[in-house]
């Protein structure tokens, strides 16, 4: 089980990772994050308003994002969020972890399709460049 406390030092949950990814290139306001997450996940993840603000509340508290700007559009407040330095580091670490997993999965899948080869590492070889445990 992944819990909020351990989120920063272990893996991120999918909605959280997607929100951070949505904010990686530019600050965005609430509904823009929803739209961006929908696009990033290829239409698979549609954050509902309650879920979005649950994630934003937690990310703000953990210092992974910050309020970037507040503006009034058509008489209504629009608040945009941006990654903090810690948030960027966390996302970078998470991306590296996922890349290693993907690379390893691809390697094993490739091995398993070749007859007579076993998808087994030689003793002493780690899991990618650095040993990662999830």
């Amino acid at each position: 089980m992944t819990y909020g406390r351990s989120m920063s030092d272990r893996q991120l949950q999918e909605p959280t990772r997607l929100v951070l990814t949505a904010l990686a290139d530019a600050p965005r306001h609430g509904y823009a994050i929803v739209q961006e997450v929908l696009a990033i996940s290829d239409g698979q993840v549609r954050l509902r308003t309650g879920t979005l603000y649950t994630a934003l509340d937690r990310l703000l508290q953990q210092g992974l994002i910050q309020i970037h700007a507040e503006e009034v559009v058509d008489g209504r407040l629009r608040r945009s969020y941006a990654l903090t330095g810690t948030g960027r580091d966390t996302l970078t670490a998470e991306t590296r972890r996922l890349s290693l997993t993907v690379r390893e999965a691809e390697r094993r899948l490739a091995l398993s399709t070749r007859p007579g080869r076993q998808a087994r590492r030689q003793p002493g070889h780690g899991f990618g460049p650095g040993t990662v445990t999830a």
Partner: peptide, 28 residues
């Protein structure tokens, strides 16, 4: 801010998807 996002998220929705949006907000 939440009202704004909720209004945009529910625009064009009806039936069960709309109910889910409302339920998500109420649960939060």
């Amino acid at each position: 801010e939440i009202a704004e996002v909720h209004a945009e998220a529910t625009a064009g929705l009806s039936g069960l998807p709309l109910l889910r949006e409302h339920a998500s907000l109420a649960a939060h």
